[in-house]
């Protein structure tokens, strides 16, 4: 594509034989996988091991035990709550890692922050974003709250919430740029610090609900003992909603944190957006 730059010394390709062998390894992997898969149970077989162990319990007892008609939510936030805590922690750690990678060492904090150089502001985008963003953010909360009865929950809602925030960043500039003085552009925007706080509060709330269950005499994340009512299924339903809300905060905060650190990091590290780079690699 385009002009061919002089190839730098040492950039020659690997020997032909090695390339051919390397490329042949992956069709072979595909064939091996397909041969192995012939041993799997038939697609859609109701009597397969995956469908006869553990899952009948989730399907037949789940709604009565946890109060969630959506069995995925019941498994996610109640039966496998400990696993989901780990997942949320992984997501939070990825956000923190990105922040540490991009904010340490070479990042030049003294550069003037002059708005995202590559924001896509125009009158059409501005008007569309003003209309869309509140709807997206509200829908995110709906997806979170309705996760007990329909597809949805903390992860999906959190990602929607984060993408609503990202849509504003793309049109109005980065989180660290203050709203232009005198403009009436509404900013639902979250600062980088705000995203970090949101994600941390989510994780802490998750652990807090688990510890509260312990304090009232149950096991960690076994919500049945929480003093939220007399019907155990209803207590679990409320605690599960709390867990989903905690996941929502963690995921929403982390998604926005990742976008902010990467966009600010690219500017501060002098990495151009788009095709300023010339040589095709």
């Amino acid at each position: 594509m385009g002009s061919t730059p002089p190839r730098p010394a040492g950039g020659e390709r690997a020997p032909r034989l090695r390339r051919v062998l390397g490329a042949a390894a992956f069709p072979a992997l595909f064939l091996g996988l397909v041969v192995g898969m012939t041993e799997l149970p038939e697609f859609g077989d109701p009597a397969s091991p995956a469908s006869t162990h553990l899952s009948p319990r989730f399907i037949e007892e789940g709604a009565a035990e946890t109060g969630a008609a959506n069995m995925v939510t019941a498994v996610l936030a109640d039966y496998r709550g400990y696993d989901t805590l780990g997942e949320a922690a992984v997501i939070f750690a990825a956000g923190l890692g990105c922040l540490v990678i991009l904010a340490s060492g070479g990042a030049r904090r003294d550069l003037p922050v002059a708005g995202m150089s590559n924001r896509f502001g125009s009158i059409v985008l501005d008007a569309a974003t003003r209309t869309l963003v509140p709807v997206v953010l509200l829908f995110a909360v709906y997806v979170l709250i309705h996760g007990h009865y329909s597809p949805g929950g903390g992860f999906q809602g959190g990602v929607l919430f984060g993408s609503g925030l990202i849509m504003m960043r793309l049109v109005w500039g980065p989180a660290d740029a203050s709203p232009r003085p005198g403009s009436d552009v509404p900013t639902f925007g979250l600062s980088l610090r705000g995203s970090l706080v949101l994600a941390s509060v989510g994780i802490l709330a998750y652990v807090g609900i688990g510890l509260a269950a312990m304090a009232f005499g149950g096991e960690f994340l076994n919500y049945g003992t929480l003093p939220l009512g007399s019907d155990p299924a209803h207590v679990r339903e409320l605690a599960t909603l709390g867990i989903e809300a905690a996941v929502f905060l963690t995921v929403g905060g982390t998604v926005s944190l990742l976008f902010d650190t990467i966009s600010i990091g690219m500017r501060e590290n002098g990495v151009p957006l788009g095709s300023e780079r010339g040589p095709r690699e």
Partner: peptide, 17 residues
């Protein structure tokens, strides 16, 4: 899926550096 998204984000951070 969400872990894949955040690991991609972390990898993009490394790529920027």
């Amino acid at each position: 899926i969400v872990v894949a998204v955040s690991s991609t984000g972390l990898a993009l951070g490394l790529l920027v550096r």
